[in-house]
């Protein structure tokens, strides 16, 4: 996995688990199931997110769990929940449905922007941590909120790059970098990724991982974009570890200044 030497030593660590990949991929919105499976295979994700929804009362064909459950570690979410009560119940149902106490906690405060409801997010995080969950909250790109979530026992924080599904990339790189510098728990950039350079940028800013869905699912070629995202996350991580040069306002020649022909 990953392709370059040193990846094993540089594993992503969340709570008590290590992951060879730093990419988390969603399962919604692919043109069809085969394209989703191809994208997952190309992405080699650490975790694969799923939603928990009311079962339709019509007869149902193939279960998502049967499809991907054996090959990937699933991370259920509470997407769409707008109250602490609904999010907590969804987390408990997810634990029963999938046998995992890991939960991507989403508490939506506004249907237009899908921005998190911070006050409820903090309460739900506290409650689920007490119930024994490993909580990964989707949150604002706000260092204070991220610190409070970590203080309450969140296993990682997942600040948004930009609103869910917009593909606008990281609209506040300063805040993301600040969160990465100060967070005592891993930082997973969640939401807003549009293309590979956005994912690389997240890693360069210091994020420990990237969670995305729409950028791959709605790409013209999801399998190819999934591979691009895997490479971008790995490249961004390498660049971060390598240490970029400082930015300068003046040009500085990289070739020697002496011995010029005709000089």
């Amino acid at each position: 996995m990953g392709g370059t030497t040193g990846d094993t030593a540089d594993a992503l660590s969340i709570a008590d688990r290590g992951f060879a990949s730093r990419l988390l991929l969603g399962t919604a919105g692919y043109p069809n199931q085969q394209m989703m499976l191809d994208a997952l295979a190309a992405a080699e994700p650490a975790l694969v997110t799923v939603a928990i929804r009311r079962i339709s009362l019509e007869p149902y064909a193939e279960s998502l769990v049967d499809l991907v459950g054996g090959r990937y570690s699933l991370l259920p979410n509470t997407a769409g929940c707008a109250t602490v009560r609904d999010a907590v119940l969804t987390a408990h149902l997810a634990r029963e449905a999938l046998g995992t106490s890991w939960i991507k906690l989403e508490l939506i405060g506004d249907r237009e922007t899908l921005y998190p409801d911070v006050e409820q997010l903090l309460r739900a995080t506290e409650e689920l941590v007490k119930d024994g969950f490993t909580v990964l909250p989707y949150c604002n790109d706000d260092p204070v909120t991220c610190r409070k979530l970590a203080d309450l026992g969140a296993a990682a924080v997942m600040p948004l790059g930009s609103p869910i599904g917009t593909g606008l990339g990281i609209i506040n790189p300063y805040a993301i970098e600040r969160i990465c510098t100060t967070s005592p728990v891993p930082v997973i950039l969640d939401a807003g990724i549009g293309t590979a350079s956005d994912a690389a940028q997240a890693m360069e800013l210091g994020c420990d991982g990237v969670l995305l869905n729409t950028a791959v699912a709605k790409a013209h070629d999801p399998r190819r974009m999934a591979r691009a995202m895997r490479l971008a996350v790995a490249a961004g991580r390498e660049a971060r570890l390598a240490g970029r040069i400082p930015k300068r306002s003046q040009a500085e020649p990289s070739s020697p200044q002496l011995g010029l022909v005709g000089g």
Partner: peptide, 10 residues
Amino acid sequence: IEIVKPFGGG
């Protein structure tokens, strides 16, 4: 009663 199962999600 709530009866649920996993669906595609992000």
